[in-house]
């Protein structure tokens, strides 16, 4: 046989789910093990409490997760996990599995049917089997990754602090800075500073 076996397949195994710009949605519906809903609810409460006390270290560690929610529904029989990631959700799944994020995944999904464990080599296939791709997924900021949003936030906070400083007011009034102030790039900055 001369033909290349998989040459006509796409480079990546087809991962379902819609994308908009840099981000993609990842939505799974899992069957909760009979009698496990209350235990699962406790786990989710603990995760939520940890967030409430400001423990976002896990989110920082991920660095690609825009938002996520866990919902128990259908009479305590099903768990919805809906999330938005930069790139594809599975790019870093092996990486997450080695961290506290992986532990959390294990704690939640171990209450659902058939979950092989986040470190299992087949965990991606299991997630794909539970996945229901969204019919509509839109982002209001399709060009921005989580990392960029964090940077933008830090930059804006620093920018606002500069605007509040009396030294900046003085610099604006200093004739020596006239040329800088008139430059198109700086005018754009001042346009943002105006309101």
């Amino acid at each position: 046989m001369a033909a290349m076996g998989g040459a006509t397949q796409s480079a990546q195994p087809e991962r379902p789910g819609r994308t908009d710009g840099v981000a993609g949605e990842f939505t799974v519906f899992c069957r909760i093990k009979p009698g496990h809903a209350d235990e699962l609810r406790e786990v989710l409460d603990e995760l939520m409490d940890a967030m409430g006390t400001g423990d976002r270290a896990a989110l920082r560690q991920i660095g690609t997760l825009h938002d996520a929610r866990h919902v128990i529904f259908d009479n305590d029989t099903q768990l919805l996990f809906a999330s938005v990631f930069d790139g594809s959700w599975d790019t870093y799944i092996d990486d997450f599995a080695t961290t506290v994020v992986g532990e959390r995944f294990d704690r939640v999904f171990s209450h659902t049917e058939g979950f092989p464990g986040v470190k299992d080599p087949n965990v991606k296939e299991w997630f794909v089997a539970q996945q229901e791709p969204a019919l509509v997924f839109v982002s209001s900021y399709p060009d921005l990754t989580v990392k960029q949003i964090w940077k933008d936030q830090r930059v804006n906070e620093a920018f606002q602090a500069v605007l509040d400083s009396s030294e900046f007011q003085a610099a604006l009034e200093n004739p020596a800075n006239k040329e800088l102030l008139a430059s198109p790039a700086f005018q754009k900055l001042l346009d943002q500073a105006a309101g």
């Binding site: 290349m4 998989g6 397949q9």
Partner: peptide, 14 residues
């Protein structure tokens, strides 16, 4: 594994 079966040329875009 899939990447090896496909060969490097088929993975060019990735």
């Amino acid at each position: 594994p899939l990447p090896f079966r496909q060969g490097m040329a088929a993975r060019a875009e990735l």
